[in-house]
């Protein structure tokens, strides 16, 4: 049990310190790396409480996909320069009210969540899922998601689909004058379409690419 507690405190310490470092570190790319460290230690905590499926999915989705995209965006921006401009410029104060508002909202949400802990016991009684403790995590999740909550599951799938299509529509633009390779065109071209014999008259020349 002691070893378990020690490992738990190590992971939670790493999680908290890296969460603080995300906001504190001056280099934005470092912030993203600390965020990744945070994700990893949180998923280790998930695995420790026996939610191994959740922990692995957290690793695959957040660390393997979402954070990579974060990193992409951050690395592409010339962040170091921008950050210096932020701190030097006098209009940096315009960020402060918005930041304060956001942090206030998050703080009050956290308060509500911690306050809601009081009703945990009543909540647990109101949920009646027949959990079979002999099954693995993955199987029991599947049993619940694909039966009792199938509509919610499909609804969340729809939300993701809408978000995906929205992102494509927002970033899609048709550029004119770009030569793209069409494989079907390329393969279906015959010899007589591609080659043409022309008798060139002297001093008149010939117009190509007509």
């Amino acid at each position: 049990m002691i070893a378990h507690a020690v490992v738990f405190y190590i992971f939670s310490l790493i999680a908290i310190v890296s969460a603080i470092m995300v906001t504190v570190s001056r280099n934005t790319v470092h912030s993203v790396f600390f965020l990744i460290l945070d994700f990893i230690s949180i998923s280790c905590l998930f695995i420790m409480i026996g939610a191994e499926f959740l922990g692995m999915i957290m690793l695959i989705v957040y660390v393997g996909a979402v954070a990579v995209l974060f990193l992409f965006v951050v690395m592409m921006l010339n962040v170091a320069q921008q950050k210096n401009e932020w701190f030097v410029a006098s209009d940096s104060s315009s960020h402060i009210p918005v930041g304060l508002l956001v942090s206030l909202v998050i703080f009050s949400e956290l308060l509500i969540v911690i306050g809601g802990w009081k009703y945990k016991a009543e909540l647990q009684e109101s949920i009646n899922i027949n959990l079979n403790l002999n099954l693995t995590n993955t199987q029991s999740l599947g049993n619940v998601i694909y039966t009792d909550y199938v509509h919610l599951f499909q609804l969340s799938g729809m939300v993701l689909l809408v978000a995906m299509i929205g992102a494509i529509v927002l970033t899609f633009r048709k550029r004119s004058g770009v030569k793209t390779q069409s494989y079907f065109k390329q393969i279906s071209r015959e010899r007589n379409e591609g080659v043409e014999l022309i008798d060139v008259e002297t001093k008149k020349g010939v117009k190509i690419d007509a």
Partner: peptide
């Protein structure tokens, strides 16, 4: 012999990209 072995393999292989990104950056 963990019961989410294949997910573990998939997760670790998806982390592999960080070594390359970090090295390049």
């Amino acid at each position: 012999d963990i019961n989410v072995g294949i997910l573990y393999l998939f997760a670790v292989s998806s982390l592999g990209v960080y070594g390359i990104i970090m090295g390049g950056w």
